Every structure is written in C-alpha cells, then in structure tokens.
Simulated assay, not measured.
Amino acid sequence: MQWIKRITLFFLLSYVLLCGLLYFFQERFIFHPRALPADYAFEVGEEMTISTADGVPLNVLAFRQPEAKGAILFLHGNRGSNRRSLRQTEGLVGADYDLYLYDYRGYGKSGGSIVSEEQLFADAQTVYDSLRQYYAEENIILVGYSLGTGMASYLAANNHPQHLILAAPYASITAMKNLWLWMVPDFILKYPLNTRENVARANCPVTVLHGRRDELIPYAMAEEIREAAPDRVELIPLPESGHRGVILDPLFTETVLKAIR
C-alpha cells in the first residue's frame, strides 16, 4: 500500500505545481508581445501616444484623412505588434473611416507590462475615450482579432459604438483553458475575458467571422457567441480559413468596409 500512497502524493504534488505555474506565469502563456525599439519608425501612418491612468504610454498608429466619416479601432491578437497589425488591416487604409491600431502594454513601442484583466480593459477604454473626443460613438467601429476580441467585446458592452466585428473569437479564455486543462479550477485564471458574456450585453450589432478550419479556437465557440444574442449577431463562416487565415481572408476586409457604408 506504500507505493499507492507515493503515487497519490506524486500526482497531488504535480497537480499543485501545475496550478501554481499556471497562476504565476499565465501572462507568458497568454501574451506573446514583440517589442520594437524606441526609435523604430513606421513608414506609413501617424504615430500617437496615449497615456494610461497610471502614466504608461501606449503606442497608436493612426491613418487619418480629411472629412472622415468615423473611426475604426483595431484590437490585435496575442502576438506581434502594430507592425503585424498594419499588414492585417492594410485593406482598411484609405476607407471613409480613419483607422487606429494600438499596442497593448509591452507590445511594440508601448510601455509597461500586462498584469491583470482590469488593466487590459481600462487601457482599452482609455484609447476608446480618446477617440470619442473626435468622433461620435455611433461612428466608431470596433474590430477585434483573436485575443483582441475579448477587449473589443468589453468596449461594446460598456459603450455605444456603431458596430462590433470579431474575427476568430473565443467564447472565453476560461473555455479555452477547459479544452485542455479542464482539471485546473477556473479561479486560477486572472484573465477570463468572457467574450460571450460581453456580446450578450453589447449595445450594437455584432458580426462574427470564424474559420471552419481554425486549429486553435473551435468554430463551435463562434456559434456559442451567436447564440448569446441571436437577434444582434451575424455569423459568417469562412470554410477554407484557419485561425491566422481569418484576418487575411478578403472577406474580413469586405465585412468591415460593408459596416462603414
């Protein structure tokens, strides 16, 4: 019976260690920023700096034009920086709406580091509030991709934008965790990022684009998001697209431009 106790103790200690690692190092699992040198210069657009409530500078790349009818705020995925966002949104440059790309803390030329969900949401709200100084809310379109869908949907639930567009969204980070680590308790997560719940409370129409071949976030999560508010959510399946392919699919650009018209 001694060997049974030893095996039980081994698995118990391994479980506790796993939970501890996930709690203390979850930022490393969720966020994969790519920093850019302070002197890095984008060859296009106009760089802006927006300061957070605690004084951290967030780098914003803006594409503005005379007599723009509104603004598009793009919230990117968990990898890269505005340099990658620029490639993903190049089809939106020169549209009737100004385009704003912003880097989260620690990404690109933004300062600081991400430490909580509350901080992520507060930073997104700060950027949104800066746009409201120049654009009416009914002329602001929110576009989120992958990780950014959690923050974009939060803004839609707590403000009154014109439209919310989600590309490759997750129902929640909690649901993503449960795909592989169902044995780990939910309270371990500091970043539940409940997109489904936010969409249910959103104050605008919502369009969801999701690849049928998404190898990271199951297509079923997009269907779950649609069911959160079926009267306001349009789900557009992309039969041939995987996770990264969604944001590069021509239908993504077409959908955003359609929302402008």
Rank of each mutant, 00 (worst) to 15 (best):
A136C: 07
E137S: 12
E137P: 03
E137H: 01
N139A: 12
N139D: 14
I140Y: 03
I141L: 10
V143C: 10
G144L: 14
Y145N: 07
S146C: 07
G148H: 07
M151T: 15
M151A: 15
A152S: 13
A152E: 10
A152K: 12
A152V: 14
S153Q: 06
Y154H: 11
A156P: 09
N158C: 01
N159S: 14
P161M: 07
Q162G: 00
Q162E: 11
H163P: 05
H163D: 11
L164C: 11
I165E: 00
L166E: 07
L166F: 12
P169H: 02
P169D: 02
Y170P: 00
Y170E: 04
A171H: 04
A171M: 02
A171K: 12
S172H: 06
S172K: 02
I173K: 01
I173R: 00
I173H: 01
T174D: 14
T174F: 02
T174Q: 08
T174A: 04
T174K: 05
T174C: 03
A175N: 11
A175V: 08
M176F: 11
M176R: 09
M176C: 05
K177Y: 08
K177S: 13
N178F: 04
L179E: 15
L179K: 12
W180R: 15
L181R: 09
W182C: 00
M183L: 14
M183T: 07
M183N: 12
P185V: 04
P185C: 05
D186V: 02
F187P: 04
F187Y: 08
I188S: 02
I188A: 01
L189S: 13
Y191C: 09
P192A: 05
P192T: 02
L193H: 05
N194V: 05
T195D: 05
T195K: 05
R196S: 09
R196N: 06
R196H: 11
E197T: 13
N198I: 05
R201L: 11
R201T: 00
C204T: 15
C204R: 12
T207F: 01
V208W: 15
L209D: 08
L209N: 09
H210Y: 04
R212A: 15
R213N: 13
R213W: 09
D214Y: 04
D214C: 03
E215Q: 15
P218A: 07
P218K: 10
Y219H: 06
M221N: 04
A222C: 11
A222N: 06
E223D: 06
E223S: 07
E224D: 12
I225L: 08
I225Q: 09
R226W: 04
E227P: 07
E227G: 00
E227W: 00
P230Q: 01
D231H: 10
R232T: 04
V233P: 03
E234L: 13
E234M: 07
E234D: 14
L235H: 12
L238V: 12
P239F: 05
E240M: 10
E240I: 13
S241Y: 15
G242M: 11
G242K: 12
H243E: 01
G245D: 09
V246P: 00
D249T: 08
D249Q: 03
P250E: 02
L251K: 14
L251D: 00
T253Y: 13
